[in-house]
Design a protein around this nucleic acid. Sequence first.
DNA 1: ATCATTCGGTAAACCGCTCGACATGGCAAG
DNA 2: CTTGCCATGTCGAGCGGTTTACCGAATGAT
Lengths: 338, 338
Amino acid sequence: MKRRTIKDIAKESGFSLSTVSLVLNNHPRISQATRDRVMAVVKKYNFYPNSAARGLASKSSKTLSVVVPNLTRVFSDIYLGEIISGIYERATSQGYKILLDIATSQFIKTQEYSKLLASRRADGMLFIASDIHADYLSVFEDSPYKFLLVNHVFPGKKLNYVSVDYAASARLAAEHLLGLGHRKIGLIAGTNTFTGLQFRDEFLRVCKTWPAGAAKVAWVDGGEEWSQRGGYAAAAKLVAQMPDLTAIMAANDRMALGAMRWMADNRRAVPEQVSVMGVDDIQLAAFVNPGLSTIRHDLYQVGIESCNRILQLIKGEITECSDLLPTSLVVRGSTGRA
Amino acid sequence: MKRRTIKDIAKESGFSLSTVSLVLNNHPRISQATRDRVMAVVKKYNFYPNSAARGLASKSSKTLSVVVPNLTRVFSDIYLGEIISGIYERATSQGYKILLDIATSQFIKTQEYSKLLASRRADGMLFIASDIHADYLSVFEDSPYKFLLVNHVFPGKKLNYVSVDYAASARLAAEHLLGLGHRKIGLIAGTNTFTGLQFRDEFLRVCKTWPAGAAKVAWVDGGEEWSQRGGYAAAAKLVAQMPDLTAIMAANDRMALGAMRWMADNRRAVPEQVSVMGVDDIQLAAFVNPGLSTIRHDLYQVGIESCNRILQLIKGEITECSDLLPTSLVVRGSTGRA
DNA sequence: ATCATTCGGTAAACCGCTCGACATGGCAAG
DNA sequence: CTTGCCATGTCGAGCGGTTTACCGAATGAT
């Protein structure tokens, strides 16, 4: 079976090559009658234009590169899942395909991130994998390449981003706990991303300057992967460090759940003895007992919005982007009065 | 900043266009001296050849399409995660990129699966999303397109596949339980895939024909998504249906964990009163208490092998493929004598 | 009836790279 | 000193589309 080309369709339908092309691209120049006759042949042969040829001539691959972090269990991360689903949904509806990549050391070392864009394999890149060491991203400052950080920021670098507002989340969380009267708080932070640092710093700041009386905060790092396991270990450390703490704040729900688990394993009642609070509002947060109080981050929306923005950057409708999406407080059973 | 082409590199390095091309493709025809001089210019401009042009001329996109099922939480499925990781690892090492797609109704209706291959956007397709209703896959029987089912089979259709051997798993599981003396068994099956049906049928067959005495098996469907929640509900149904059952076999670990949870919630000791067994050996299986006995499925390996095979199909090294990977019994605390 | 528009379609110049056929120069063998 | 061969480069014909400028016919205004 020979591969058909637009030329074959032209011959068979009796029109010129250009006409077929215009039909396939829904150009208004062509009459309905012609359109129908051409499409009949297209359908008959189940013809689809060669995308490489198309990409070459039109200088667009209609493809988006999505780079995810190199976690041990990347694809089983609910957090990432939400974002990717949002991106996929939007991209597909706009006729774009998704090229998936993992930010392995190999990926970084070979500068695949540049290569993908320079070779025009992708029209733009959505990068969900940034951390504070991702200095190589400087390539994308003032470059002609369409690049966007997803749910990350990079202070000091001119990089586009769409992220939830981690500082705002920190404020909401701090205000909630402080409002409940907590003055001895343990914080499980994530320190390998700038958003994580922003959260920590803002949380500390608010606690320190609370009008009704500053709170004492002890903080520890929850580990590179922000995992439940890391949260569990961190909770132990915090309690050792500040035995009379009345609340634990974790920078994401998974670590908060790990902390709750530690409390259960060590016979501390939540929230009676210790309030526990997370960030993200993953599904599980509502299903544990007691329900986890948290700051809702609509990651699916982050995906949608990121995709919208990168498409606008590609089309040239905007030239830069720094969106911070709002977050909201979700109070469940895991937090109570100090 | 103008986009550079191979022609610019040729001019600047003083060699012909073809020479540059040959250098970039590591053709042995070129001497080391020339190679070095050309590469110097390539590095200088950070040049990467246009992949559309390359694809057009070479008739290969160096891209693999990976289609995943349209589950509500696709990307947070550990099961899929393992497979995708395996595929990614292999594909990348061979210079192939991954184009990700979700088998939404839209994807099916618009025949994207054909379009991707017909338009040469991808050189081959790895399909992880098959179910018993995927009749449209017939397009790929005897077609020139490179297509492979991953951890799925389709009896009656000539489709390539790489899957673990579900029938063998069923045998191992049945033999384990029967060997422990169980004669009243509840089975939580997955009936929306052929591999699921194979597992169920083989399990039933072995139980019915066990030399030391047939076992009675009651089975129910665990739901479309093979989820923990589905397993929980299924366990309830089974116990209602066969109150004296001494073992529950689930077609995957998630459903088994759901069943264990039901047992805990309803005060039945595992394994003293009811043995529970799963399939897959997901990480969590080792961490619950008691540990879940299961049949180990190396899904990462399935990913690796699938990718190997599709690449062989693409290169024409093989023309068809029907691999069944071995599985093994993993005994932990959740199963005991009847 | 004449001329300017509009409408619908076409010719042809690319887009940037691959690869088989062909050219060239140097050297060993006859 | 030819002839024959390697070893290395180069030519140029595609690959399969997109898109702009151009063109003839039909329509409408004067």
